[in-house]
Design a protein around this nucleic acid. Structure first.
Lengths: 186, 186
DNA sequence: CATCAAATACTCGGAACCGAGCGATCGGAG
DNA sequence: CTCCGATCGCTCGGTTCCGAGTATTTGATG
């Protein structure tokens, strides 16, 4: 059980039992799909895995009309514990991750000075847009709920700001020659 | 073909044809395994996929002693093009990604004020250590190769710094009550 | 020259992932 | 009342991922 979506499910069930479709809907309504990759396919796999581990259990299976049955899952005591442990571990232990941009930057040389500068300028543009959007939704959310429930947006904003600054600096460095292409690389 | 490891392979073959094991070894020697997830299993899958796409081709199959055969792969013209396109795209277009810490922060509330502060302090400690290490290897690398070949480390350092600052601030906010736990949450 | 750790080189199968599809039902426009 | 798009709720199966295992060879040590 590695998928963080599992943690999100446990977190939701802490409030009340739900069926998978409702979990996905709730996560999306609350904008949690910015922090978790919510895909229906994976959701059902994850729920099955949580069952295997004994962290959730089927509470009832309801049939409304001729629609597919809805199985409603609830947290077990073990699940409640696991949730906290899970959050704690992810907070405590930084994990080696591999954002795609990091990969790309490793081969920035391949674009040549002007190509690199141009591509980076476009990234900067897009980053500014998405930052604007995040800041907006953060402001909006703060009027509805306590800050504790939106700290993750503050974190995302901070990282995006740092990335944007770095990208802008590198564009400057390329243009000024502070970041030079060695002979033979274009 | 989504796996960035594919991009790394193309990047390597740009220099000279190699067999898979040598690719992995070279990537690790150069510390590229900080930017790409290099797992042997995936590597062979990725190489097969690159073949399917016609971006690389088998050059020769050498048998040394009774060891498994080594198949040496080289870049095709299409592969050369694709490599640049790939880097360009990843630089230009920020992708929605889901770092585990972002997920965890979404449920920071579950740890309670003191638990959260404590876990965050430990994270900060570990971040400082890994930052120290990155800075060291950056300095060392800069004596060997031009800056262009280590910019990705500068990027990683920047992000880690931003994260560390944020974590430290939040610890302060929790302890001072600027980040409060609403009634009923613990 | 016998032994053993390290390096060489890859295969395999189970797990995870996830988008497309499927078969309903509901709400509203005409 | 009848059509149609949106919503409901889930399944299916094809990738993709990857760690553990396998089997050999080299090099260092005693």
């Amino acid at each position: 059980m590695k998928n963080p979506l599992g943690m999100a499910v446990l977190g939701l069930l802490l409030e009340s039992p739900l069926h998978p479709h409702a979990m996905a809907a709730t996560l999306r309504e609350r904008g949690m799909d910015r922090s978790f990759k919510v895909t229906t396919g994976s959701l059902y796999d994850v729920v099955r895995a949580l069952m295997r581990e004994g962290w959730i259990e089927a509470r009832e299976t309801v049939k409304v009309g001729a629609r597919p049955e809805r199985t409603i899952y609830g947290l077990t005591a073990a699940g409640r514990e696991e949730f906290t442990r899970w959050v704690d571990r992810l907070v405590r232990e930084p994990q080696a991750e591999f954002p795609k941009f990091l990969s790309a930057v490793s081969y920035l040389g391949a674009l040549g000075p002007s190509g690199a500068a141009e591509a980076l300028r476009e990234r900067a543009e897009r980053l500014r847009a998405s930052l604007e959007e995040m800041r907006g939704s953060h402001r909006a959310a703060l009027e509805q709920v306590p800050r504790l429930f939106v700290v993750e947006v503050e974190y995302a904003v901070r990282l995006a700001e740092a990335e944007l600054e770095w990208v802008e600096e590198i564009v400057g460095d390329v243009e000024s020659g502070r970041l030079a292409w060695p002979e033979g690389e274009r």
